[in-house]
């Protein structure tokens, strides 16, 4: 018998009698009145930086300035003309200083932001860049993870990720170090 059938049959034989799924009513949970305030607070906790802007024009200006100052930038933000094409090869992305990527929405309880593969160009971009900038509109916030998963169909794209702050580790004596393998900084630009 194949390993698959052996496993499935033993599991079927040994499993307990049916136990029902719980009824989950998460609307009973308290949610913050001001999602933006709660999100901003959590973003700081996870090591992120908040930048507020009125609209894309300010952002566009900022990126132009940085580019002319010689910063190696990949800009993937939508609503600002054609996004940059992202090279497929990881080695070519190794030297990217800063990536600007549109987030789908943020989660107030933990400062995480959902990012779709389509927004990244290449899956590795938000991980390999030295600094990551995620761009969100102020109204794109949900209170908690229950509402977050309500909002997305996770298999819509091949890959998607919640990102909460810059890459970090505390594997040496529990000392927090920002910038383990991935970005050493995460900024979130909120467009009002």
């Amino acid at each position: 018998m194949s390993a698959r059938n052996t496993i499935i049959e033993t599991v079927a034989k040994n499993k307990p009698a049916l136990i029902p799924l719980p009824e989950m009513d998460f609307s009973q949970f308290e949610t913050p009145v001001d999602l933006f305030e709660a999100f901003s607070k959590q973003l700081l906790v996870v090591g992120g930086r908040l930048i507020e802007m009125n609209d894309e024009s300010g952002l566009s200006q900022l990126i132009q300035q940085e580019k002319s100052a010689g910063v190696n930038i990949i800009n993937r933000v939508t609503n600002m003309g054609e996004p940059d094409v992202v090279p497929e090869n990881a080695a070519a992305l190794h030297a990217v200083d800063k990536a600007y990527i549109s987030g789908a929405f943020g989660v107030a309880e933990n400062g995480a932001i959902w990012v779709w593969e389509s927004a990244m160009g290449q899956r590795i971009l938000p991980f390999i860049c030295q600094q990551l900038v995620l761009v969100l509109r102020r109204k794109q916030l949900v209170a908690n993870m229950h509402l977050a998963y309500n909002r997305i169909n996770v298999q819509e794209e091949g890959f998607g990720v919640f990102i909460a702050g810059p890459s970090k580790t505390a594997d040496i004596e529990q000392s927090l170090v920002i910038g383990a393998h991935g970005p050493k900084a995460l900024s979130v630009i909120i467009l009002h």
Binding site: V46, E109, G160
Partner: peptide, 23 residues
Amino acid sequence: RMLARSATGQAITTYTSHFHRPR
């Protein structure tokens, strides 16, 4: 909501990656 809070006291891990199809 529970994994990272239980593990390290973080509200969530930095990366919660959802893989559905190969690139």
